[in-house]
Structure formats: C-alpha cells, structure tokens
Design a protein around this nucleic acid. Structure first.
Lengths: 244, 244
DNA sequence: TCATTGAATATGTATGGACATATAGACATA
DNA sequence: TATGTCTATATGTCCATACATATTCAATGA
C-alpha cells in the first residue's frame, strides 16, 4: 500500500498535494467500485492538516464530477459521468473502414513539446507542462489526403513512444483507459501554405478544409486537441440535402 | 441601483444567496467590460458575512469560468471563455441558407414539460425543474424532412411563448444573451415508428437518421438538448471521400 | 412485528483569524 | 531615463472551531 504523505515544507500548496493524492487514491479499483473514501475529518487528522484544506481539494474533484459527496454518508467516486454516453462515436479509421476505404500513413511523428498558449488554455495546464504532439499524414494509395496534428492532455499519460499505427481511440481506451466520448469541432476553409502544399501534394494556394476538433472524455474533460487539414478536392465534410 | 441584501434568517444558504447576487451583479455592463468586482473583504463586510463565505460563492463562478481572479489585483468577469471560440458554428437555418435551400416549418409547438431523468442529468437540474420543449417539423416545399425536438436549460430563461419561427440561435443570442458556441453530437440510424412515419410522411420501418446534439455556451455549459430525426432518403450527414 | 427514538457518523454551512504572495503604483536612486 | 524599492491592496493559503442536517442502524417500546 502506498504511503500518502504531505510535505508541509513544500512550495506546493497543501490542497494541491491533497488533490494529487486523491487522484492517485481513487484509481484504486475498490474506490472505482464504490467504496467510501476516507472521511474528511479522519483524512485531515491523518495528514495533519485541517478539514477545510481537505475540502478545498475534494471540492475541485467534485466539480470535475470525479467524486460525489453524499451528506450523512460519505464520498465516493462518481459512477457514470455526466453526459449520457452518446450512441455512436467512431474514429476516423472506423468511419473510413465502414465505407470500405483503406487508409495508410505517409508520415507519422510523435514528440514531446511545450504547450502553446491556446493549448494551455484549452487543457487548463501550466506553462511548464509538456504535451505529446502527434503528426500524421494519411491518405489513400494514390497519395496523402489529410494532415492530422494532435495534442494530448497530460492527464492521458502518453509518452510519445506509443504505437500510433493502430486506431487511435481504441488504443487510448485499451491501454490508457481514456474513453473518447464526445467532441467539439469547427470547420472552415483555408489556403494551402508551403508546408501544407508539400505534404498534401497540392499547389500553394489550393483550398484546404480545416477542421479543429477537441475530443473529450465522458466527463467532458478534454483529452485531445486535433487539427485536420483535408485536401478539399479529395474530401468533403458536409451536410447534404437532396432536392425533393 | 439594485440593493443587495442577504437574509440571514432564510433557509437558503448564505453562499447560495451570494452566488445569485453575484450572477445578477455581473450582468451589469461595466463588469462585462472588465471592471473589478468589489473585493472580497469589502463585500464580506458589506453583506455582514465572513470572507470565506464570499469565497465559497465566487469559487463556484470561477469554476464555471464566469469569473477570473487575479492575485494582487482583483476579480473580473471572464472575457472570452474557455475554448477558443471555434471558427465557425452555424445553425441549421444558416447552413441551409448558405446552400441556397429554403426551409419551412410544417409544425411548431413549444411547451413547458417535466424533465425526464436523462435531461435532468444532462442539465444537472432537480426533479422539480420544468424545461421548455420545442418540437419542430421542418422541410422543403415538397414535404417534411426533419423532426427536431429540443429541450432548453432553465438557465436560458425561455418561457415557451417565444417566436420560434426566426433562426433559433440568433434569437437566443439577441434576446437571451445566450451564445451557442459548441455542440456535442452523436449520430445513429433508427427505423421509423408510427409517429415518425406520420410526421415525416414515410412508411413505418423506413430508415431514419437520428442525431442527438447537446449545444453548449462558450463556457461549455449545456443550453440545449436536441434530437433530430432526418428522412434518410432526403438527407445525409456524412463524411465523404472521393476515390483518387 | 413494526414503528419510533436516539446515537453515531458524515457532509454542509459558516465564522474569524493569520500570514503568504502577486500586483501596481508611487517614489527614490543611479 | 531606467532601475530598484517600498507600500497599499487584493487574492491565495491555512487553521481551529462550531453547529446544522442527512443518513444509517441499533435499541426501544407499543
């Protein structure tokens, strides 16, 4: 059993230490299955801090809907988080597979990079945090069609050394227990710059379909920020209606 | 100027009273434009409560990203919330308008109903809450194409008496200051039951494209739960790829 | 047997105080 | 002019304490 300790001398605020400690603690299967967490008073005493500080930490997890407090009973790990798991969510690979189209990777590169301001805000992480960046150039046998650039939230725990050739969301679910449930996305069109033209093998200035996508887990917490650049001549992402 | 008062005798917890008070307060344009809110110590003193209670209230709004606290400076209303407002988000009416297709309403009915369990969980509201339900049957001149059923979060403030013939998200933004920024959606296919077949004017058992959509404001808070039932023979919602 | 009471226990609410730390502005200095 | 320093101010962190209220369960009593 892991020993939980609080460092009163540390520069890290106590409530943040407790928060991390709790995040670790509730990974334990018995808590996942519904066991009551140590009660606030006991936990405070055990850690040598005040109950208020414990609450400050748990408050955050409660807000994130990781924990559920019940007056007179105790605190447990939330069962099935927030949004009804939507009926269908499929990765790009699956969508294409269902259409009978086979994709291949032209380039694939993963690395650990600093998070820029946009990503920091989106993921709500600090300046010091590193994120895994995944760049994938994918297409048909006849040539590349789409360039994906993905950034993953540190919470997921990727190292950048993973095998990214398998379907991404399957891998996240199986290996990292991270379920991609919903996404927010916006679509617009841009012109190909030099880099895009080279990668997608189109002239500079050609139209490119640009899709931003934030993939979230069932609790609505972001796990991936994904930029997709599609050859507009090869790919349409539309709502279509036939005239009656 | 509205007088803010706290009722110590009320059954409603003080921090909730303060929370409501703040929600009202920050609707004031000067705060929307960045003016510092009254500082915590002064506010506590003015309301005759402790600073911690004030913080308990502001904490919630900070969590919701409505407020931003800055150490040594003060607290302000959050400017442009959370997710980078995605580049493009358009309502169904707009999407169709851009394609040069004109839609008409075949049926339109709004009412106040009890929220079922799914909606309560999605909106995080209590059993007692009523929600506005909007049912719209829309289509081309040649016949109905899609049945929309929408539920609106009570926070939006709809009564059910609104003019729903105008574009929905425009109306929400202009009249209710609710910005629909992002949505989460899932798509699946179902078979038409009796009700659907009658409304969409198709045989029972015909395929129907079923779309669940949760529309959220820029802070990620749900404002609408939307079910869309599309005639699959008239409407496709797809990712298409052309063979090279 | 069954309903009521009451104790134990957990979270919910609220107070009041203390010191730490980041910020902006005024001021003094090189 | 540029730089550093001091200070007032506001939030950040943390504590000890008290009482309210919901829940559970065992003991009690009709």
């Amino acid at each position: 059993m892991k020993v939980f300790n609080i460092d009163h001398g540390s520069a890290i605020p106590l409530h943040l230490q407790v928060e991390d400690l709790l995040r670790d603690l509730i990974k334990n299967p018995e808590y996942q299955e519904g066991k009551l967490l140590p009660n606030e008073v006991a936990l405070a005493k055990q850690l040598g801090i005040s109950r208020n500080t414990v609450r400050q930490a748990t408050n955050k997890l409660v807000f994130e809907r990781l924990l559920v407090r019940k007056k007179g009973v105790g605190t447990t790990v939330a069962k099935d988080n927030i949004t009804t798991k939507l009926d269908k969510w499929s990765s790009f690979t699956h969508e294409m597979g269902e259409k009978g189209v086979t994709f291949r990777n032209y380039e694939l590169d993963a690395s650990l990079v600093d998070a820029d301001e946009e990503i920091r805000r989106l993921f709500n992480i600090t300046r010091k945090s590193k994120v895994v960046k995944l760049e994938r150039l994918r297409g048909l046998d006849t040539g590349p069609v789409v360039l994906f650039i993905s950034y993953f939230h540190p919470r997921v725990g990727l190292t950048g050394k993973e095998d990214f050739t398998q379907p991404l969301y399957d891998m996240l679910e199986r290996t990292y227990h991270t379920v991609a449930a919903v996404s927010k996305e916006g679509i617009s069109a841009i012109l190909a710059d030099k880099e895009l033209s080279e990668k997608l093998q189109i002239p500079v200035g050609d139209p490119v379909l640009f899709r931003k996508r934030v993939v979230c887990d069932p609790g609505g917490r972001p796990i991936e920020y994904n930029l997709g650049f599609y050859r507009a001549d090869k790919f349409t992402y539309t709502i279509e209606i036939e005239r009656g």
